[in-house]
C-alpha cells in the first residue's frame, strides 16, 4: 500500500477554490479539527482505492464523536489522518491551527506525542513490560517528562488499575489491558483521544466499563473520537458521523 502523489496542477486549483470556499464560510471559533476537501488514495494491487473523498468536517474541542460505517468506508483512514499516522493525499486537515499536511516528520511525532492519545482494538501493549512502563512509554519521547513513573502511576489510577502497575500484559485480562492502553493514551495529557474499535476485542461487560471510562474522560474536557461499527456504542456518543465509500453520508448530533 502506498500513497498516490497528488496530481499537482489540478490539486493546486482545487486548493485555490478551497481557500475561497473557506473564506466564504464563517468558521466556528471552537473548531478544533477542520477537514477541508480531505482526500486519501491508496494504491492496492495496481488500482487506486479512494479511501476518503472530499471530506469536509469540523469537530469542536470537547466533543464526543462516534465515527461509524462499514469496513472500507474510510472511517479508520479518517481517524489515522487526525492522528497523523498517515498523510492526506490532498485537501487540508487542520488540528489546533496546525496544518498536518505541512508538518515535518519530527513535528508530526511531537504532535502525536503531545496532542493525541491512541487506543487500539488490539491494545498494542509491549510484551514483557510492566503496565507502569507501558503507560510511561509516551513520556520516553516527550520533551519535558518530569517524573515519568509518577505521572504513569497517576494515569493508571485514573483508569482504576493502580494496584496492577507491576503486572505484565500477559497477566492482565483483556479489559485490564485496554485500560492500561487508555492510561498510556492519557499519560501525556492529550487534547484528543482517538479510539479505533476499542471494544472490538472485549466482552459486553468490559465494553461497558471502557465506554463509561471514555464518557468520564470526555466529561473532563478531552475530545473523544471513537471509530466503531457497533451501533449501540455509537449511539452513546453525542455526535455520530457515518462514512460510506470514503464520503460522509450522515452527521447527526
Amino acid at each position: 500500500m502506498s500513497d498516490v502523489a497528488p496530481p499537482k496542477r489540478t490539486k493546486r486549483r482545487v486548493a485555490q477554490l478551497d481557500a475561497a470556499d473557506t473564506a466564504a464560510r464563517p468558521e466556528t471559533a471552537t473548531a478544533q479539527i477542520v477537514a477541508r476537501d480531505l482526500c486519501k488514495t491508496y494504491v492496492m494491487g495496481g488500482s487506486a482505492v479512494h479511501a476518503l473523498q472530499d471530506v469536509n468536517l469540523e469537530i469542536a474541542a470537547g466533543e464526543y464523536v462516534a465515527v461509524t460505517g462499514q469496513s472500507g468506508s474510510g472511517k479508520s483512514t479518517f481517524m489515522n489522518l487526525i492522528g497523523a499516522l498517515d498523510q492526506p493525499t490532498s485537501g487540508t486537515l487542520t488540528v489546533d491551527g496546525a496544518d498536518l499536511g505541512k508538518l515535518s516528520t519530527n513535528a508530526l511525532a511531537q504532535y502525536r506525542n503531545e496532542k493525541i492519545g491512541f487506543v487500539f482494538q488490539t491494545f498494542n501493549l509491549l510484551p514483557r513490560t510492566s503496565a507502569l512502563d507501558n503507560v510511561a512509554l509516551p513520556l520516553l519521547y516527550a520533551q519535558d517528562t518530569g517524573d515519568a513513573k509518577a505521572r504513569a502511576r497517576v494515569s493508571l489510577e485514573r483508569v482504576g488499575l493502580a494496584e496492577r502497575a507491576a503486572h505484565e500484559p500477559s497477566a492482565l485480562s483483556g479489559g485490564q489491558q485496554q485500560r492500561v492502553a487508555i492510561a498510556r493514551a492519557l499519560v501525556n495529557a492529550p487534547k484528543i483521544l482517538l479510539a479505533d474499535e476499542p471494544t472490538g476485542a472485549l466482552d459486553s461487560k468490559t465494553t461497558e466499563e471502557i465506554i463509561a471510562l471514555f464518557e468520564d474522560l470526555n466529561e473532563s474536557g478531552i475530545t473523544v473520537i471513537i471509530v466503531t461499527h457497533e451501533l449501540d456504542i455509537a449511539a452513546r456518543a453525542k455526535r455520530q458521523i457515518t462514512f460510506q465509500d470514503g464520503r460522509v453520508v450522515e452527521d447527526r448530533s
Binding site: 492522528g83 499516522l85 511525532a109 502525536r112 506525542n113 503531545e114 498494542n124 509491549l126 509516551p138 519521547y141
Partner: peptide
C-alpha cells in the same frame, strides 16, 4: 514492526 508503529504513534521520532 508493530512495536515500532506503536512507538511512532505515541511520539517516537525517526531518530528515536
Amino acid at each position: 514492526t508493530r512495536e515500532i508503529g506503536l512507538r511512532m504513534a505515541v511520539g517516537a521520532r525517526r531518530r528515536d
